[in-house]
Design a protein around this nucleic acid. Structure first.
Lengths: 242, 242
DNA sequence: GCGGGCTGTTACAGTTTGTTACAAATCCGC
DNA sequence: GCGGATTTGTAACAAACTGTAACAGCCCGC
């Protein structure tokens, strides 16, 4: 469980307010803590402030649809997802599973059926936590950016993927693991490549330049990675793990 | 145990009918279920229809010899094998073990000796079952895909079988057993083929390329198996055992 | 033995990374 | 401030690394 209580915290994302309140009451009766959201933006707001253990996500939503949200969620974290869809069609199920949903339930569904699936998915999630999923932290966030550690991918605040080369990724990771402290070139080379600094070695400077081009608003006046003359570089933003 | 009774099911492969019936009676007395086969083709027929827990395989067989059968068995499954050979020579033992036999017994042998070895091998097999690639786990799932470990078959999200060669299967399995961590080429070669990396050896790269062609949505931009330049490769998805 | 499939090797093209060179920025003593 | 020394930014090139097609050898079933 992500939170400190013993009740799993379930987030229901559905545009139908009747379904929201119905499910909410039902799950609360069965010892779940429940939050609700009518769409994508409300969902992100809840995720920002709460430690959610499982998301029940409607496939059909006004605005951004469930599949898109599902994929975006997977870029950020590992929270289990159960998709609800009006169609009992296999195609939807397949696409959903490919997007990273953990289970799927065709509407209309029996509430007890949903309860059973929630239990099953949570059980699977907690049992596999220690084994085949070695990392508890999957992403690091800073200033709206997200670095997904399992996919080794960087996402901008608007969720667009920004391709990083291996070298750029390792360098950025070195900064995110040591934020707000000056790192000299030797440390950076050690952290990112595991090798020591040689005389006249400028490779870090060049990699910094390349990384800035990708993550700085104005690379000429960097805000995230600042130069410390004759000291090294410093990552200025706050970093939070997910 | 693969079958649902509590009796382990042993398959005896020997061309000598006297030995077959002798061993069969003896083992049945000691609470084993026994099937017999006189050679390769009978063996495959039995394996097709029964859930065999252990195979006692004679090295000297008319037609296809025991070593060849042993290797072929290993390409298909993980059933423990005890080899019988007329020669007490170490060379045969070594070759047998290399082919994947779990133990070896020189003829002539004491029946109690065979019983002891069967017990030991089954105990070893069942204790390792609960570890890394447990036998009670029959499949590994990731992003909608399913890898069936007993059949060594891969299924897409829509349940369609995707044929894998032996090499591709072993490589994929290596990833699924070590997801979300960077594996270098030496590790991958060791895990999938059991041999060390030689200089200028590019075989892993080629196998990766072939595997990607089968499991990646867009092999040009792989999502499941990512390249880590100068590091190796990483399997990015979550893996859950079934 | 023949043919087909699998695997490793090789070659070459496309990326990524390190090196070098020079311009720009900063520092320091005056 | 001014000029020279030092440090950093980055374009351009070279070297290293990876992707994959094509080929050859091997194994296996017939």
């Amino acid at each position: 469980m992500e939170n400190h209580s013993d009740k799993p915290h379930v987030l229901i994302v559905d545009d139908d307010s009747e379904i929201r309140s119905l499910l909410s009451q039902f799950l609360q009766k069965h010892e779940y803590r429940v939050s609700v959201a009518a769409g994508g933006s409300q969902m992100w707001a809840v995720l920002d402030g709460q430690n959610i253990d499982l998301i029940v996500l409607d496939l059909m939503l006004p605005g951004e649809d469930g599949l898109t949200l599902c994929r975006k969620l997977r870029n950020h974290n590992n929270i289990p997802i159960i998709m609800l869809t009006a169609l009992g069609e296999d195609t939807d199920r397949i696409v959903g599973l490919e997007m990273g949903a953990d289970d799927y339930l065709p509407k209309p569904f029996n509430q007890r059926e949903l309860l059973a699936r929630i239990k099953a998915v949570l059980r699977r999630a907690s049992s596999s936590e220690s084994k085949l999923t070695p990392h508890n932290i999957t992403s690091l966030g800073f200033e709206g950016w997200t670095l997904n550690l399992t996919k080794r991918e960087l996402y901008r605040a608007d969720q667009v993927l920004v391709p990083l080369t291996a070298g750029e990724y390792e360098l950025l990771l070195a900064f995110l693991e040591n934020p707000q402290q000056v790192l000299n070139r030797d440390q950076l080379l050690d952290l990112s490549k595991g090798r020591p600094l040689m005389p006249f070695d400028r490779s870090i400077d060049v990699q910094i330049s390349r990384l800035r081009r990708k993550i700085e608003q104005d690379p000429k006046h960097p805000a995230l990675i600042k130069t410390v003359r004759s000291g090294g570089y410093i990552f200025t933003a706050n970093v939070d793990p997910y």
